[in-house]
């Protein structure tokens, strides 16, 4: 076999925000690019482009992963959730509502990643302490530095869910 095989695409089947879809995806395509450019879900942001800021966080099988360093093809057969899947029936998710009401979103660029990371935490630990919230969000940077309100929003959302 040649040591320089040509790049190729493969059919990837992924459950995105509850709906299965199939797309031809290049082997080197990143999950963030697939979501934004193929699926048209631009809520997931590209921040640092190197897995350092958390703006691109999405849930894969219910756990948060940085989509800018995840290959889309490796999500074949898996469930992916983005910020677009959070609101249901026109009603904001409790985390979205809390971020809005507690002014947890300032410029808003880090917010989708923050909310997805917080959602992963609340699914595993519905009543987290402040330290647990800070630890769960430690991979997410807010350049507006509004961390106090972000942590407060997650606390309010946790209370709303209990």
């Amino acid at each position: 076999m040649s040591s320089q095989p040509p790049p190729r695409k493969q059919i990837v089947r992924m459950r995105v925000n509850g709906r299965w879809r199939e797309d031809a995806v290049a082997d080197h395509a990143l999950l963030v690019d697939y979501l934004r450019e193929t699926a048209g879900l631009t809520g997931t942001k590209t921040g640092c482009d190197g897995g350092e800021c958390g703006a691109c966080a999405v849930l894969v099988d219910g756990v948060a992963v940085p989509s800018c360093i995840t290959l889309a093809a490796r999500c074949d057969g898996h469930s992916v959730e983005t910020i677009e899947g959070m609101a249901q029936g026109g009603r904001l998710h409790r985390l979205q509502k809390a971020f809005h009401e507690q002014l947890g979103a300032q410029c808003g660029f880090c917010t989708p990643g923050m909310i997805m990371a917080a959602e992963a935490l609340l699914r595993k630990n519905p009543k987290p302490t402040e330290a647990e919230i800070r630890s769960a969000l430690s991979g997410n940077l807010c350049r507006c530095t509004g961390y106090v309100k972000i942590v407060k929003a997650v606390q309010i959302a946790a209370e709303a869910g209990s």
């Binding site: 897995g51 958390g54 966080a57 894969v60 756990v63 948060a64 992963v65 940085p66 360093i69 995840t70 990371a117 992963a120 630890s135 769960a136 430690s138 991979g139 997410n140």
Partner: peptide, 9 residues
């Protein structure tokens, strides 16, 4: 090691 989302991968 890294952050929580990295540790999942």
């Amino acid at each position: 090691i890294a952050g929580p989302s990295h540790r999942n991968l």
